[in-house]
Amino acid sequence: MPSETPQAEVGPTGCPHRSGPHSAKGSLEKGSPEDKEAKEPLWIRPDAPSRCTWQLGRPASESPHHHTAPAKSPKILPDILKKIGDTPMVRINKIGKKFGLKCELLAKCEFFNAGGSVKDRISLRMIEDAERDGTLKPGDTIIEPTSGNTGIGLALAAAVRGYRCIIVMPEKMSSEKVDVLRALGAEIVRTPTNARFDSPESHVGVAWRLKNEIPNSHILDQYRNASNPLAHYDTTADEILQQCDGKLDMLVASVGTGGTITGIARKLKEKCPGCRIIGVDPEGSILAEPEELNQTEQTTYEVEGIGYDFIPTVLDRTVVDKWFKSNDEEAFTFARMLIAQEGLLCGGSAGSTVAVAVKAAQELQEGQRCVVILPDSVRNYMTKFLSDRWMLQKGFLKEEDLTEKKPWWWHLRVQELGLSAPLTVLPTITCGHTIEILREKGFDQAPVVDEAGVILGMVTLGNMLSSLLAGKVQPSDQVGKVIYKQFKQIRLTDTLGRLSHILEMDHFALVV
């Protein structure tokens, strides 16, 4: 994948999101292997301009796509893939009243899908469409860049269908997702969380590099694949309309690839034109409109599966009536509230959605109805927002919020430890010299600072030695090549209790 991002070429006709291997024109390309080798690009942008032909009021008969309808489940399912879809609609009884809503608040519980998330729908649909058009064949390999849930859905379907599955996901995604993927037989590649989507090191860039190296491999490409919004247009939206008897006044959905909100909203605009569509985008993402909503100094966020630093091709923002931004604290607070007060075992993005819903639905009156999409299960986040310690460490809970008995030293300040200034190293000294210094002084790690004293990161003896043994660096290389740029900081005025929580999850903390 090139470091400079080429513009994806656009073909003359058809839909841009065809499933299957992508040609340089962004659509299915038939021909000899030699032709494909000559024409197939190194990668295709996940934010390529959409060429979708959908228009409100256009006859369904003019759609270029294969459409399906929700099917009634048999008493005995032939395999677990038949437990994807037909998820329950559940009334939220307490939270709406707590925040003064007059309307009825309903939750579409997508964590009841077989793999635990709304992404099971698009995973199965992308595979079925690729099999139907002859792209996927027995023994082929599926590769997908994902925040985890699409990966789980694909790995689940691949396990049943017999495909090899490789999932490329950023490091910030939970260990629970990784464990589930491994249990399903998927191979996992992790990428830096802070890598831009168009960087060769991003999950998108690495996935395309693997595709170019592995024979008979395919990126189904949830960011561009029409099967993504079509899955929701054909099934999720129809289920909502049936469950609500066609009567709903507002739908609120958090947005990642945009397939969920695009597919549902398009069908609702056709069948229930008075329904307002509300999009939820986390602070630090750029999906919301108008652009002024996205202006923030924050560039990272903890909530998973929603928000991006690019506009995915499948996201149709014209069908969203209003956007709201959400933050991590309210997302996790509301997710825990949904679990504790409503018994809905949902993930953090569901918290984002409901946090926005109780604001947006203030305009609705008694007798009206708001539906929220709860995308995934708490299963993926047992060591994250479900953990009091994690919430404390991230600053989303305060010590006084917890009532468990603490040891005698818990409320003492870090400054009472009488710490001395640490050994520091410059980023320009060599790895070999740094190892000598650390061994001589008896230290395992040291902060790396520039000549102005600005902290650049941390270097550890173990990481340097393993990097040297693996051949990633040489003793003569500058130590700046092996620094940890993500590390926890703590102030002298913070409590030892807070430091204790940090050290339970990290090997060190830097006192500043």
Rank of each mutant, 00 (worst) to 15 (best):
R161N: 10
D249K: 14
H22T: 09
L181M: 06
E201N: 09
P273D: 08
A38H: 10
P215V: 05
H67I: 11
A155S: 13
Q242Y: 08
L56N: 12
A195Y: 06
I143N: 00
P64Q: 06
R209A: 08
A186R: 02
H65S: 04
E176A: 03
K75H: 06
A107P: 07
S227M: 07
Y233L: 02
I44L: 09
A253L: 11
G162P: 13
D86I: 09
P46K: 01
K72I: 11
L105D: 00
T236E: 01
T260A: 07
K119N: 02
V180N: 01
I240Y: 02
P49L: 03
C15W: 09
P16H: 08
G85R: 06
T53C: 07
A24N: 10
V168H: 01
T146G: 04
P229W: 01
I261N: 01
G20P: 10
G100A: 10
Y223D: 00
D238P: 11
S227T: 11
D129Q: 12
S73F: 14
A231S: 06
L124G: 07
E201K: 09
H66W: 09
V255L: 03
P21Y: 03
S123L: 05
E4H: 11
P138E: 08
S73D: 05
S175L: 07
L241Q: 03
G263M: 01
D140L: 04
E37R: 09
R121W: 00
V10L: 15
C165M: 04
S63Q: 04
H203M: 07
K172M: 05
E270C: 02
M250K: 06
V204G: 07
S217T: 09
T262C: 09
T141Q: 08
S61G: 03
E9A: 15
W54S: 06
T13H: 08
S199W: 02
V204S: 03
N216F: 07
E40W: 12
P6Y: 11
F99N: 09
P170V: 04
H17R: 08
G185E: 06
G205R: 12
G258A: 01
T5D: 03
I127Y: 08
I219Y: 05
L268W: 01
S199A: 04
V180Y: 04
T262S: 14
S27H: 12
P41I: 11
E62G: 14
A158E: 02
A157Q: 06
A253W: 02
E62F: 07
A24I: 10
